[in-house]
Design a protein around this nucleic acid. Structure first.
Lengths: 220, 220
DNA sequence: GCAAAAACCTTATACTCGGTAGCTTTGTTA
DNA sequence: TAACAAAGCTACCGAGTATAAGGTTTTTGC
């Protein structure tokens, strides 16, 4: 994600929330329409991925023409990043990464709770799974977003684990970075299998079992 | 994957290898062209996913028109399944699932070797990662293929682990199914992070560390 | 309270993509 | 070498993203 892109996302975010300062404020009808479009797009991207979603269908469900939709979001890509920003904002309320519970065990148990919550939201989980899968391609519009997301997540978890080590709660020889990456990998991998075949996988229980075993292994 | 689909794949496979019996055999030039198309498609699907790949581009690289390409593979979906069949055949040589080394530790170490091999083949890994990510959507053409693949993999690994239990090598209270799912999840999740940010992740080492810890935990 | 500006949203259009129809050329084989 | 299937082309369709240009509605500044 280059500087131009970042600037565009910021502009879009502020336009969508109607908080442009020097600029003119959007109309009330437009704000409502944008919010509606975002919610529909969230669903569609989650069900069909980025490339499998058509603007025409989103526009139809939002009851305007496709060109009308592109008035609010100048491109499909801009719509995607707006949706991702929306999701990030919603998630921030649930799991504040910059303020994880301190120490190893509380952090890992918070992740178990997150997985249990996700198990009740297949649509959202699918959005992230499909998008991050697509986004490993370097030229995908969400590639930079996905990189950034994983960096933030893994450093947050690793830091929390490292605190556990310093507090003497976890083994001194623990590789916090690798452990954080493993935990995230387990979450993503279980999600994938769960989405493909929900009946064959009790995602929350399997993840909990993994974390239980991990805690036995890394506790001091 | 329904019966019609399976029949189509079989027909394609035999046509592609030029082993039609009652039917006339394909020309040598056609066989060569098909092989070339498959290799190019393998690359393109791996780099851009299914929906991100265009037949026109594959045709251009194979030096024929898009309609000419569709003479050999009647649809994009048929081309995809042919590519997947090709990969499965290539993989079968490397890791024969129906004949995993018996017992827990040898099986898990074989998977470590597989991950080490994958770490040298980012293109192929990307093909599977992008495709399985896309394929969680129920109407994706590779959805059935992905389901089938995971069922086969997980039962193969679970069976091998169960043998380890029966032989007294692994703990009697091991949940072989859940353990197999966890191991696969770890492989997939690490691949995802590795593809997104290769420099931040030593995939093979991290997976090996996970397996080492797991073995300590589940050994009798 | 009224003009001007901006936002909103439309129709029309350009280009790309997967796929079909039908025709010509080329290679194989009897 | 004649018959015939494979190979590959042109031409086209419907659907996709995106742009251009224009008309209508709402807000804002005076």
């Amino acid at each position: 994600m280059d500087a131009t892109e970042t600037a565009k996302r910021t502009a879009t975010a502020s336009a969508a929330t109607g908080r442009g300062r020097g600029r003119r404020q959007g109309y009330a009808t437009g704000d409502a329409r944008r919010a509606r479009i975002l919610n529909i797009a969230l669903q569609e991207f989650g069900e069909n991925g980025y490339r499998g979603t058509s603007l025409a269908r989103i526009a139809e469900r939002a009851e305007l023409t496709q060109a009308g939709l592109l008035h609010h979001f100048r491109s499909k890509q801009e719509l995607l990043t707006a949706v991702l920003d929306l999701r990030d904002a919603m998630d921030a309320e649930r799991l504040d990464l910059s303020n994880l519970p301190d120490g190893g065990e509380p952090t890992l148990l918070a992740l178990v709770a997150l997985v249990e919550h996700n198990a009740r939201q297949p649509g959202i989980v699918q959005l992230f799974t499909v998008l991050t899968g697509e986004a490993v391609t370097t030229d995908h519009p969400a590639h930079g977003w996905a990189q950034e997301r994983y960096r933030l997540l893994s450093t947050s978890i690793a830091t929390a684990l490292q605190h556990g080590v310093q507090a003497g709660e976890l083994r001194a020889d623990l590789d916090a970075t690798a452990c954080a990456q493993q935990v995230m990998a387990m979450m993503d991998g279980l999600q994938l299998q769960w989405l493909l075949d929900p009946e064959r996988m009790d995602m929350a229980a399997t993840f909990r079992a993994y974390i239980d075993g991990l805690l036995k292994q890394i506790s001091a």
